[in-house]
């Protein structure tokens, strides 16, 4: 946990625990590579939340396309985020949604390193 905090001070909660578990067996060289890959590809939950807030104005679903869920993104875009209900639930749920994307990045990065 401490090592993960040293390398990734911006993480917290579930994501921090997941990353600290997955970098456990890595050597220093691999850790540097993982760090650069993960920092470049990770999606920041704050930017993600600002995109969700666009949905309250009427431009909903941009955040879903941003994290690669294109089908539901288009659906939200053309129905105003399921008439604002989906937008509000995503606003509550934004951290676990961005973690759902970042988790795939962790798995991809680990696969490419090894």
């Amino acid at each position: 946990m401490k090592e993960a905090l040293k390398h990734f001070p911006e993480l917290d909660g579930e994501e921090l625990q997941y990353v600290s578990k997955s970098i456990e067996g890595l050597s220093e060289e691999e850790l540097d590579l993982f760090k650069s890959i993960y920092k470049a590809r990770r999606k920041d939950p704050v930017i993600f939340m600002i995109m969700i807030l666009l949905g309250l104005v009427g431009v909903a679903g941009v955040h879903r396309i941003f994290i690669g869920q294109i089908g539901i993104g288009i659906l939200y875009f053309f129905t105003g985020g399921l008439c604002l209900i989906g937008t509000i639930v995503d606003l509550i749920n934004y951290k676990s949604l961005s973690f759902e994307y970042n988790r795939t990045i962790v798995i991809d990065a680990l696969n490419q390193i090894r």
Partner: peptide, 13 residues
């Protein structure tokens, strides 16, 4: 529709 309940006249859904 929560837009309609909130009083916004137009809703894309």
């Amino acid at each position: 529709c929560l837009f309609e309940i909130a009083g916004v006249p137009f809703c894309p859904g």
